[in-house]
C-alpha cells in the first residue's frame, strides 16, 4: 500500500502531464525516495494509480539504473568505472573499498550500511578518480581520502 503522502506526491506529478502514465518514472522515484527501493508490491500500487499494467511499470523500473528493484544499504557508493577514471586508477579505489567493506559491485554489507555499485562517467574527468556517496560527489580521490570518507557515513 502506498502511503497517503506518496499518493499525494504522485498525483501532484500527474497533474502536469497529458495522461497519468507519463508520471511513471516520477512515481518510481517518489516511492524509492520514501522506501529506499521499489518492491513488487509498490510496482502494483504504482500501476494502479497510473492506470497502466504492472508489467509496464516494471518494464520502466528495470530499464533505468537508478531505480532499485532490490533493497539497498543506508548509503550507496557509486564508483565511476568509465575510461578517464580507469586511466587515473579507479581500480585501486575499488579494491580498497571492496576489501575494507568485504563486498563486491552489486552487494550490500551485512549490517546494511553500504551498497557498492559501479556508475558511468560522473562528469568529473578532470578530477578523476571520482565517486558518489548518496547525493554527494567526491573527486581527486586517493585511498587515504576514501578511508576518511567512509568513516563519515554511518
Amino acid at each position: 500500500m502506498l502511503t497517503e503522502e506518496e499518493k499525494k506526491e504522485i498525483l501532484e506529478e500527474v497533474k502536469q502531464y497529458p495522461y497519468p502514465a507519463v508520471a511513471c518514472i516520477d512515481a518510481l522515484k517518489i516511492v524509492q525516495h520514501h522506501r529506499g527501493w521499489v518492491s513488487d508490491e509498490s510496482v502494483k500500487d504504482i500501476a494502479q494509480i497510473l492506470e497502466i499494467s504492472n508489467e509496464e511499470v516494471d518494464g520502466v523500473a528495470t530499464f533505468y539504473s537508478r531505480i532499485y528493484r532490490k533493497p539497498i544499504g543506508r548509503n550507496v557508493i557509486l564508483i565511476c568505472d568509465s575510461v578517464s577514471c580507469m586511466i587515473m586508477g579507479y581500480g585501486s579505489i575499488y579494491e580498497y573499498i571492496s576489501k575494507k567493506l568485504g563486498i563486491a559491485f552489486g552487494e550490500t554489507t551485512s549490517d546494511g550500511r553500504f551498497t557498492l555499485l559501479p556508475i558511468s562517467c560522473l562528469g568529473d574527468c578532470d578530477h578523476a578518480p571520482a565517486i558518489m556517496i548518496n547525493d554527494d560527489h567526491y573527486n581527486n580521490l586517493t585511498v587515504g581520502k576514501v578511508e576518511e570518507l567512509l568513516a563519515s557515513y554511518n
Binding site: Q16, C24, K29, V60, F63
Partner: peptide, 27 residues
C-alpha cells in the same frame, strides 16, 4: 519551463530516446 531529472541511462542522450523517457517510458 520544467526540470526533469533522469533515472540514469546513457541512451537517453539520444534525442528520441530522451523523448520516450520524458513520456515516462523505457528510453
Amino acid at each position: 519551463l520544467y526540470v526533469h531529472s533522469s533515472a540514469g541511462r546513457y541512451i537517453c542522450g539520444e534525442e528520441t530516446a530522451l523523448l520516450n523517457s520524458l513520456e515516462g517510458k523505457r528510453g
